[in-house]
């Protein structure tokens, strides 16, 4: 309690205001990330949390850490997450089937463990560690924040730093080996070889898939192309967005294809008749 009061005495108004704005934002982002139904929304909430954390670092006189947090985590890593999420499609991530058995139980156990660890670390930093203040030579004093960080990373913490980079490089190379192993065995085909393979029947069809239909009633790319007999060409619907548009635009497709109920002869607007 005493320690908390001592800490509170040194907090300026501006810092307190920014904390009470950024802290709840970060927390809301974290909760939103867990409870959002859509995977991309989850990722966006996480971005919000990371941005708030980055801003808190800057307020705490750690500008380098704050901006690196934004560049690396929000800029690069979350962008990769989004990239993957978009590649798997919009609704693929909404599956509620648990792939890993006992996932929730273990997540709960590990979560509690992590919470205990963090509480221990914070408690220790509050009780045992004596603070040096930001003006200390190893903090923002001396040659400044950035130079001090560089000094520490390349002298005292060189070995852990190199270990981390070795770990990351190993992970990257491993991912590439796993991802490219099939392609390397087959050898990459040239455009000419691909054309020949298409005509030999090694692929589903020799030509590309038909494009979307563009009609007077709908200019969306989700509108299917029509075959000569007026029926829908199923191949013209994109695999990526089929799950959403095929359902949502079913009525529109029907009216375009002419398979829906015909309008009454006395109806002024053909579409309104059926809704009544």
């Amino acid at each position: 309690m005493l320690l908390a009061q001592q800490g509170a005495a040194t907090v300026s108004t501006g810092e307190a205001v920014s904390f009470w704005v950024l802290g709840p934002l970060a927390l809301a982002g974290a909760l939103g990330m867990i409870f959002a139904r859509n995977a991309v929304h989850s990722a966006l909430f996480l971005v919000m949390t990371m941005l708030s954390l980055g801003c808190i670092y800057m307020v705490q006189q750690a500008p380098f850490l704050g901006f690196v947090q934004i560049i690396v985590y929000t800029g690069a890593i979350m962008m990769l997450f989004l990239f993957v999420l978009m590649l798997v499609g919009r609704d693929a991530s909404d599956s509620v089937v648990e792939v890993l058995r006992g996932q929730r139980l273990w997540a709960g156990v590990l979560g509690v463990g992590l919470a205990v660890l963090i509480t221990g670390a914070v408690a220790r930093s509050l009780i045992d560690v004596t603070d040096q203040g930001l003006a200390a030579d190893t903090a923002n004093g001396g040659r400044g924040n950035v130079a001090n960080i560089g000094q520490l990373i390349f002298s005292d913490y060189l070995f852990p730093f190199e270990l981390t980079s070795a770990l990351l490089i190993t992970a990257a190379v491993g991912a590439m080996v796993l991802g490219y192993v099939n392609r390397e065995q087959r050898g990459r085909r040239t455009q000419k070889e691909l054309v020949e393979a298409r005509f030999r029947g090694e692929h589903d069809r020799p030509s590309p898939l038909p494009g979307p239909g563009v009609f007077a009633t709908a200019n969306s790319v989700a509108t299917p192309a029509l075959l000569p007999d007026g029926s829908v060409a199923p191949e013209s619907l994109s695999r990526l967005i089929e799950s959403t548009t095929a359902d949502k635009l079913a009525a529109e497709r029907e009216s375009v294809a002419g398979t829906g109920p015909a309008a009454g002869t006395r109806a002024l607007a053909p579409g309104k008749e059926e809704s009544r």
Partner: peptide, 24 residues
């Protein structure tokens, strides 16, 4: 780093616009 951070955040707009439009 501020300029780099801003440019890396700005891309979110483009990527999210592409995703949120709901067409290929």
């Amino acid at each position: 780093l501020v300029v780099l951070a801003c440019s890396s955040l700005g891309v979110y707009g483009i990527v999210l616009a592409g995703w949120a439009s709901g067409s290929p």
